[in-house]
Design a protein around this nucleic acid. Structure first.
Length: 588
DNA sequence: TCCTCATGTCATCTG
DNA sequence: AGCAGATGACATGAG
């Protein structure tokens, strides 16, 4: 506007400047300079026509491929499923035809059919791109010349991860297909059943799935051939989503990592066990060796249903074994029988169980007199995870956890699956103890108490007080420390008490047994003595009568037992005493 | 579903 | 009076 008022002598220059300014404004508004250029617009129209023609061709090819696929399948009239024909199907015929432009935008707006999704996946991961890491591990039919995971091919692979936005959409649509999910579920179930062979119905619908399920790699090559090659790659991609906890999320992640995506990572993510095996072979090894390795891997069933469980959503998402999984925990050494810091075998925490407050916790919440626990639990509401989980959470992102898990499948304890060892009572109880203990540790961590639970409980009073005085602690911290110490001490005391009680019971039972034995012995002895006494009395009576009967008076007559009796002194002297006199003597 | 056992925790007693 | 330990009682979880 200013320049319009400029003198006329500079008009041409001013006009140019004005035009330039207006253009700049237009550019700022989003319109390029070419908008005003007729030749540009003409080119654009031509380009649009060209694109439309390409799109029509592509649609045509798509329909052809669908027809070819249907031609390879045979409708089973009984089940209504498509069953692969027995004659070998052609392979690699469409590879060259598959366009890689990845223009999925046309599919937006209406839901993709199953076959469209197949095609979409085929285009996303064409077979002639060998950088797909997982299938070579599982598919022994891969020719030896296939240079698996060669670095040179990696860029080619990454180029296919294009158009993140549209691909996202496409993945979302694909994964929302109930048809596909049903097939995936079917395959997973078959695998978990450990039949070793995919049921034909499942195969018929998805001939290639089985190749991407660990443990299913021994499927016949005929089955492999039935599957169109592009589907092989297709389902490699889909399997990653099948094992994904959050399907939509994973599908979003696929294109997102496109820039830095490497087949190795892909493989590590979803086939950690295979990855280790494959990586054990140097990349420089020749094709034959590689095939041997692959065949070995294929024949070796390295992944069992338990391993598959590790692919399950819960595991995968958390990067940790199922919580049923018991955490290796920190024992404060409270237990009399357990040493401090012993790790316990895993269990699924139980894993799966989130560590909520227990009954006792809820009681604490109620606020028992003198207890500040309700305070600090309210102030610091916690989802009590395991120590391990918390540490992991604090140190690593979930993505890092996944990566860690994928890269170190061997370091993952076998018991993480929760099926390694049949749990037995003692272990479980110990785990419970540790879990409870760990809650105090969690609380201590939550309140950022600068002392370990072990110290809080086990320090002598003086040291404990000294330690407390060294740190500036608020009320909640002090209350928690007091509670932890009280509970810990009392826990030990209760254990000691019970131990003593048990020892007392055992001692009393032993004493009872001894006394019973003594009683029996005395009864027996008493009985024997009684018998002996009776015998002696009997002998004495016999002897008495014998002696008394031998005695005669002056007239040679025997004494009457009514009038006389025999008495003997301690020295053995025997007297004949008249009974009357005896009575008199006694009276005297 | 009920019972038993082991354990943790609290309240109370005791030295 | 305060503390630590002992112990009874109760709750809970697992088998």
């Amino acid at each position: 506007m200013m320049e319009i008022e400029m003198p006329k002598m500079h008009q041409s220059q001013q006009d140019m400047d004005l035009i330039d300014i207006l253009w700049r404004q237009d550019v700022d508004l989003g319109a390029g300079r070419e908008v005003f250029d007729f030749s540009f617009r003409q080119k654009e129209v031509e380009l649009r026509r060209q694109r439309e023609q390409e799109e029509e061709k592509r649609q045509q090819r798509l329909q052809d491929q669908e027809k070819a696929l249907l031609a390879q399948l045979q409708l089973d009239e009984e089940t209504g499923e498509f069953v692969p024909r027995s004659l070998p199907a052609q392979t690699n015929t469409t590879n060259g035809e598959i366009t890689q432009n990845g223009a999925f935008a046309e599919h937006e707006g209406d839901a993709l059919s199953f076959d469209e999704c197949m095609q979409l996946l085929a285009e996303t991961f064409p077979l002639d791109e060998p950088a797909e890491p997982a299938p070579p591990c599982l598919d022994v039919s891969v020719p030896p010349s296939t240079d698996l995971m060669m670095p040179a091919n990696i860029p080619a692979f990454t180029q296919n991860l294009l158009l993140p936005g549209s691909l996202d959409q496409a993945w979302m649509e694909l994964l929302s297909l109930p048809e596909l999910q049903q097939c995936l579920n079917m395959q997973m179930q078959d695998t978990l059943n450990m039949d070793g062979f995919v049921k034909l119905s499942g195969e018929a619908q998805n001939p290639s799935y089985s190749q991407y399920l660990p443990g299913m790699n021994h499927l016949s090559s005929a089955q492999t051939e039935v599957c169109p090659p592009e589907y092989i790659n297709t389902y490699d991609g889909s399997f990653s989503n099948m094992v994904s906890p959050n399907l939509s999320q994973m599908s979003l992640n696929v294109p997102d990592v496109g820039a830095e995506f490497r087949p190795e990572e892909f493989n590590e993510l979803f086939y950690p066990e295979m990855e280790t095996k494959v990586n054990s072979c140097p990349l420089t090894c020749d094709g034959g060796h590689m095939v041997n390795q692959l065949a070995e891997i294929a024949n070796d069933p390295p992944v069992n249903p338990m391993d598959l469980q590790s692919f399950s959503p819960g595991n995968f998402s958390s990067g940790k074994p199922e919580p049923m999984v018991e955490f290796a925990d920190s024992d404060s050494g409270l237990s009399l029988d357990s040493s401090p810091h012993t790790s316990s075998p895993g269990k699924s925490l139980n894993g799966d169980e989130s560590f909520g407050f227990s009954d006792s916790d809820s009681e604490e919440m109620d606020g028992s007199p003198g207890s500040m626990e309700s305070d600090y639990t309210e102030i610091f509401p916690l989802v009590y995870l395991t120590d391990e989980a918390q540490a992991s959470l604090s140190e690593k992102s979930s993505a890092e956890q996944q990566e860690m898990k994928a890269k170190n499948p061997k370091t993952e304890p076998v018991e993480a699956s929760g099926f390694s060892k049949p749990p037995f009572t003692k272990d479980k109880q110990k785990k419970r103890s540790e879990a409870r203990l760990s809650r105090d540790e969690q609380r201590a961590k939550a309140l950022q108490i600068p002392l370990t639970v072990d110290m809080i409980i086990n320090l002598p009073v003086d040291d404990f007080n000294e330690m407390m005085s060294k740190h500036q602690l608020n009320e909640a911290q002090l209350a928690l420390i007091r509670d932890i110490r009280r509970r810990g001490k009392n826990k030990v005391a209760a254990q000691n008490c019970r131990k003593r009680k048990m020892e007392n019971i055992v001692g009393l039972e032993y004493e009872l047994d001894s006394l019973k034995e003594e009683k029996e012995r005395l009864k027996k002895e008493k009985s024997e003595r009684s018998t002996s006494l009776r015998e002696m009395k009997h002998q004495l009576s016999t002897l008495y009568q014998e002696v008394f009967g031998m005695l005669r008076d002056e007239q040679g007559k025997p004494f009457s037992p009514n009038e006389y009796s025999l008495q003997h002194t301690a020295d053995g002297t025997v007297f004949l005493v008249p009974r009357l006199k005896k009575t008199l003597v006694k009276n005297n």
